[in-house]
Amino acid sequence: MAKLTCESTPAIDRQLALMDAIELLSGKWKIVILRCLYLNGAMRFKDLQETAKGITPKVLSKELQQLEENLLLTRTVNNTKPITVTYTLTDHATETLPVIHALIEFGLKHRKQIKSKWL
């Protein structure tokens, strides 16, 4: 079996894939939004804003649009009076769940490490 180096095609492909994933989930709120939708199922804009405390309507709108463009959520306009819009995760988005769980676990361990250092 050939040794992989940073310059080899498989290594470059993996690096590009990593960069794609980071780009896709980058930002302060995208992972938080995905997690809210995992935990709560379909949600309306206002519900997402209340659940993701601290996010502004402008930023939430932008993040939702980017997640939809990247096929991670579906925006559904409901024929109600008044018209309501709900957001749900796509099947593709569920593949990010293990990544989100891993980040949460790392964050918990990291907080514990930092806290023990300063106490």
Rank of each mutant, 00 (worst) to 15 (best):
E68I: 06
A2V: 04
P82D: 13
T88P: 01
G107I: 05
Y38N: 03
E68Q: 13
M1W: 00
K115L: 13
E105D: 15
N79D: 12
E7G: 00
Y87T: 07
K109Q: 13
V85C: 14
Q15Y: 09
T9V: 07
L34R: 02
N70P: 04
I100C: 08
G54T: 05
D20R: 06
I31L: 07
A21S: 06
K3G: 01
T51W: 04
K115E: 14
E50L: 13
P98K: 05
H101D: 12
G27F: 02
P82M: 10
P82W: 07
I114C: 04
V59Q: 10
I114A: 08
L103R: 10
R111Q: 14
V99M: 13
H110A: 10
L72R: 09
T96R: 07
M43V: 02
I114L: 12
L64T: 05
T86K: 09
K112R: 08
Q49I: 02
L67Q: 03
N79H: 10
S61E: 12
S26L: 01
I12V: 04
L18P: 00
Q113C: 11
E23P: 00
H101R: 12
T9I: 09
A2G: 01
D91N: 13
Q49M: 13
L73P: 09
L67K: 02
W118T: 10
K112I: 06
L103S: 09
G107C: 11
T76K: 15
I12Q: 10
R44E: 15
S116V: 08
T86M: 07
G54F: 03
W118Q: 11
L71D: 15
S116G: 01
T80E: 13
V99P: 03
P98L: 05
L18T: 10
A2H: 06
C6T: 03
T84E: 14
H92L: 15
E95Q: 15
H101L: 13
G27T: 01
I104H: 14
K58Y: 11
L72W: 10
K109M: 12
D13S: 06
R14V: 01
T51R: 08
I55T: 09
L16F: 04
W29R: 04
R75M: 14
K53F: 14
N79A: 11
N70E: 12
I55M: 11
S61I: 02
K46F: 09
D13G: 00
H92C: 11
A17Q: 08
L71A: 15
F45C: 04
H92Y: 15
L108Q: 09
Y87H: 05
I22P: 00
H101A: 11
T5V: 00
K30G: 03
Q65Y: 13
E68Y: 10
V59A: 10
Q113A: 14
L18Y: 09
A93V: 04
E23I: 00
T74S: 11
K81P: 03
L16M: 06
